[in-house]
Nucleic acid binder design. Structure first.
Length: 281
DNA sequence: ACGAGAACCTGTTTGC
DNA sequence: TGCAAACAGGTTCTCG
């Protein structure tokens, strides 16, 4: 579910309800997600006031008033669901953590596949945290420039698709937005990363920024039952040009799928890639 | 050192 | 219709 735009959407939803609120109760309903949860998590969070809700790449950073930060990754299927406590349903089988605030709101972390990760770390230690230390630049920051990406792609033998999926190259892109950005830039996903270093980054970097910005504005992409913290659906999935559109016309070619084959699908390092071979070279 | 593939886990969709 | 296989937004680990 969650790539940068979805996590940013969740961050904004959480910030509204959590910033300045005290967490009066934490219920931990199982001991592990991808890894064991931090020892004594509920007791270490109960009574704390939330200072800030930030984001780094696909990680949510919930800053507490004692200087600790709750680090949350939603994995593939993680969700944060917000409801008033008096209207909250009983916890379901995949509701792993429940947080109640002093003004009567409940935040439930739900994650059926349990690829999510949660840690509680000192704010000072964040930059060197094992999950964050190697992350590449934030794609929406100004410092993420064509030159910056070019340097990171130079000399790499893997495909541009795999390189952009690698969070050390640039942080926050996932399978959907890599496909969309490569389409918008007119770059073939099969091209070597090294061959994109240089002038193709002049198109690729603005395309990445544009796709992410538009997706955030739309509240992210909703697949299956993914909803924002508010319960609303994101609607960027309707704007996809190529992702999930095998055999259909891409958003910019007038070509008839019956004659040209339309959007093509291929598998790269085990993941589906969607692209338009007429537009992407 | 780097890159491809497997593994982690559950739910939903697809195909025979 | 029913069941099994394929597939899904991510990350880490292993192996060549």
């Amino acid at each position: 579910m969650p790539e940068l735009p979805e996590v940013e959407t969740v961050r904004r939803g959480l910030a509204v309800r959590l910033e300045g609120r005290r967490i009066v109760r934490v219920e931990q309903r199982r001991g592990d997600l991808r890894w064991p949860l931090p020892v004594g998590l509920p007791a270490r969070v109960e009574g704390r006031t939330v200072r800030s809700v930030g984001r780094r790449a696909k990680y949510l950073l919930i800053g507490l008033d004692d200087g600790m930060v709750l680090l949350v990754h939603l994995g593939m299927s993680g969700r944060m669901v917000l409801t008033p406590i008096d209207r909250a349903a009983p916890p379901g089988p995949h509701d792993h953590l429940v947080f109640d605030t002093d003004d009567g709101w409940r935040i439930v972390f739900n994650d059926p596949r349990r690829f999510g990760m949660i840690d509680l770390v000192s704010g000072n230690a964040l930059p060197t945290h094992r999950l964050l230390a190697a992350l590449g630049p934030e794609p929406l920051e100004e410092s993420f420039s064509p030159d910056c990406l070019s340097d990171r792609l130079a000399g790499r033998q893997t495909s541009i698709k795999a390189a952009l999926l690698d969070q050390r190259t640039v942080a926050g892109l996932g399978n959907i937005y890599v496909c969309e950005a490569l389409f918008e830039a007119g770059v073939s996903p099969s091209r070597s990363a090294a061959s994109v270093a240089g002038k193709r980054c002049l198109r690729l970097v603005p395309a990445i920024k544009d796709v992410l910005t538009r997706a955030i504005a739309a509240g992210g992409s909703s697949l299956r039952d993914y909803v924002q913290t508010t319960g609303e659906l994101g609607y960027f999935q309707h704007a996809w040009a190529v992702y999930g559109r095998e055999g259909q016309a891409c958003r910019h070619c007038d070509c008839e799928p019956a004659r040209t084959g339309g959007v093509q699908r291929l598998v790269q390092s085990g993941r589906s890639t969607f692209f338009c071979p007429r537009r992407q070279r």
